[in-house]
């Protein structure tokens, strides 16, 4: 019991929690934008890989860190545009298109990495984002600016969705595209925009891994974080505020299992601790399944004039 208390009382634990949460917050907001507009985006896992790689490569090539973040966002946007064309423009299966994009984005990133670095065995490194020492707020001043960006985006997106005409349009095309069309909203354009913006956020989520959490690009570094974001959006009932809460809660347990694993007396195999995040995500889905209020038009393709 005292081991638990020692962990919870220390600042490093909370610093780790917020660090683990950052890519999840960004990714979950990205998924949320797509799904509020009515489109599932299973491309997230691969888009995060592509964002992690392209952002890192940009910085490695001598450009600034923020340029790297921008390139990661653009990479995400390009894959988002492809997903939008396939699922909105051509009304193909959102499941299959998303999985295809995850495979394509992952394969392209790994291919690009091997073309750029055919022989290296230890991944080359960059100088990542520095902590914001100047901030003077405990826990937060040990984070990088990308964490601050993620935290600021939560109220911004919540406000945008609830209080602006554009946000209303996004929610309408996700709930009832026929009615939205009747109101003069261009359903295809709004959905495409939401997917592109959401995918850009997924790209930034990936870049956090290579430009802030670590300083190099590794194979399998995303490791299911994208799928966890998909689960977190259901847990959050498609609300940005609850998404933040879900990501923090999830990160809390993830950071805790890591500490327990280190402090542990090796009674249990370490793999059981590592399973915890995935099992928790499944549990969250089961608990919330009854209460979740899905966007009504989620996964329903829309063709003008067809019902």
């Amino acid at each position: 019991m005292s081991a638990w208390l020692d962990i919870l009382a220390g600042t490093p634990f909370w610093v780790a929690t917020l660090r683990v949460a950052t890519p999840l917050i960004l990714g979950t907001l990205g998924v949320l934008l797509c799904e509020r507009a009515g489109v599932l985006n299973l491309g997230i896992e691969g888009i995060m890989v592509a964002g992690a790689f392209s952002g890192w490569l940009t910085v490695y090539a001598g450009h600034g860190l923020w340029t790297g973040v921008l390139v990661a966002a653009l990479t995400g946007a390009v894959f988002g545009l492809l997903h939008a064309w396939l699922t909105v423009g051509l009304a193909l299966s959102q499941h299959v298109s998303g999985l295809g994009i995850t495979m394509l984005a992952t394969a392209l990133s790994y291919y690009g990495y091997r073309v750029a670095f055919p022989k290296v065995s230890t991944p080359p490194t960059i100088e990542p984002f520095a902590p914001m020492d100047w901030l003077g707020i405990p826990v937060l001043d040990e984070q990088t600016p990308l964490t601050l960006l993620a935290l600021l985006l939560v109220p911004l997106i919540a406000w945008g969705l609830q209080r602006t005409p554009l946000g209303l349009a996004v929610r309408m095309v996700g709930e009832n595209p026929q009615a939205a069309e009747g109101q003069g909203i261009r359903v295809m354009a709004v959905r495409t925009g939401a997917i592109v913006a959401g995918s850009a956020l997924m790209g930034v989520a990936g870049s956090f891994l290579t430009l802030s959490a670590f300083n190099a690009f590794y194979f399998n570094m995303v490791n299911g974080r994208g799928w966890i974001c998909i689960a977190l959006v259901v847990f959050a009932s498609w609300r940005p505020g609850k998404a933040l809460l879900g990501a923090l809660l999830f990160a809390f347990f993830d950071a805790l299992q890591l500490r327990l694993q280190q402090a542990g007396d090796a009674v249990l195999p370490y793999q059981l601790y590592l399973m915890l995040p995935y099992l928790l995500s499944i549990l969250a889905l089961v608990v919330m399944a009854r209460r979740a209020t899905y966007p009504q038009a989620l996964m329903k393709p829309y063709r003008k004039g067809e019902r």
């Binding site: 299973l42 299911g224 590592l274 995500s281 889905l285 399944a289």
Partner: peptide, 27 residues
């Protein structure tokens, strides 16, 4: 069963269980 009884999307649960299984194999 979670899909049929509770309406839990099977895509995410089956995906997440892949990671659980690999860790189980490792253990």
């Amino acid at each position: 069963l979670m899909k049929a009884r509770l309406g839990v999307d099977e895509v995410v649960t089956t995906l997440l269980l892949n990671f659980v299984m690999l860790l189980l194999v490792s253990a």
